[in-house]
Amino acid sequence: MGADGGPVGPEGPRSAAVLGHPVDHSLSPVLHGAAYRALGLAGWTYERIDCDEAMLPAVVDDSPGHRIGYSVTMPGKFAALEHASVVSERARIVGSANTLVRRNGGWFADCTDVDGVTGALAAFGDLPASPSAVVLGVGGTARPVLAGLADMGATQVVLASRRDNSGPAADCGRELGLEVTTVLLGDASLPAAIADADVLVNTVPEPGIRELVDLVSRSHRLFDVLYDPWPTAAGAVAAAAGIPVVGGDVMLLNQAFGQVELFTGLPAPRDEMAAALAEALGR
């Protein structure tokens, strides 16, 4: 650990890992491994650890001395936030953490998923300064999406859910300063809302989104947080209609940039990480 209590610098072997269940599919080792090689961090390693939310506190507490941080995927993001000794403001508002960094004898929690969202939205290249959005789904990913939209200058968001369970996500959006309207996915007003919005964001997993792809054709831009297999059901419809599409791989890449910088204290080697992810996805 550095003298200021921040992340350990590039000197000496260090390790990080991704926690999740299941975790075999995680591409985080590809991204972080490419970063460490590009940064010349000899001896730095990154591994996968199969760990559910109940196991997470014990795994983190038993971390070896060389372990500088963790990427956290589902289902452990809520447990990671609760277990941290210090929490970033955005992680508190979103209510989950995808990043744990060893600091001052404890663990700092952050949500770089928000950076993933802003990076994905920026990839369109032509979003207005205050974009309006419709978000399909109100699960755990919807809240970082709302935070990313707020960071991009959005002020109005429509949240569409299958059931009347949008309250926590809507409360998160309002704390972020967004004007949030909630509707059901079957609401007659939703197609017009999508047509009026600058961007449609899909957080509904497949196969659920397959029942809703008719909505996609009404959008001006689609950001689908899913990415594998690609194209997704929604992405295929958008591409066929000539609608600009950004996939969840762009979110994955951009959230990893922030993690690498928190772990190493160095600027993320973005080009090398992007090339490694493209190779891993066969794109």
Rank of each mutant, 00 (worst) to 15 (best):
A170V: 12
D61I: 08
A17H: 08
D164L: 03
N98Y: 07
A3T: 15
D151M: 04
F78E: 15
G33E: 07
L146C: 03
H83A: 05
F257P: 03
S88G: 13
R270D: 00
A109H: 13
S71E: 01
A188K: 08
G282A: 07
V204G: 11
A241M: 12
Y227R: 09
A79H: 08
Y70M: 07
L200Q: 06
S130W: 11
E179N: 14
G208R: 15
P207W: 15
V225M: 10
A38C: 01
A109R: 13
S15G: 13
R48S: 07
C51F: 03
G76M: 04
S15Q: 13
S26V: 08
L31C: 06
T155I: 14
S71R: 00
D52A: 00
G137R: 07
R210A: 12
T155Y: 12
A195D: 04
F257L: 06
R48N: 07
A16T: 14
A236I: 00
A122Y: 01
V60Y: 01
V237H: 08
R48M: 09
G247S: 15
F257Y: 07
D4S: 12
V204F: 09
G20E: 02
A3W: 13
G153R: 00
S130L: 11
F223W: 12
A120K: 08
G40Y: 06
V8D: 10
L212M: 11
Q259H: 14
P13A: 15
G119E: 09
A91N: 07
L253N: 12
S85T: 15
C51G: 04
S26R: 05
L277F: 11
M273S: 13
S189Y: 01
T182Y: 02
A123W: 02
A142E: 00
M152H: 13
H21I: 11
V145E: 05
A241F: 09
G105P: 08
V117M: 07
G186K: 05
P131I: 07
S132Y: 10
D171R: 14
G5S: 08
G235D: 03
P231L: 06
G33K: 02
S15R: 15
G9R: 06
P231T: 05
G148Y: 07
S217C: 02
A268L: 07
G137T: 10
V201P: 00
A79Q: 06
G248S: 05
H25L: 11
L190C: 11
T181M: 06
E211V: 15
Y46V: 04
T264L: 06
T73I: 02
A79N: 08
P13G: 09
S71Y: 00
G208Y: 14
D126Q: 13
G125D: 14
G167V: 13
S189E: 09
H21K: 14
V250Y: 03
A268P: 05
M74T: 06
G106Y: 08
T73H: 03
P128W: 05
S63N: 11
W44V: 12
T232H: 05
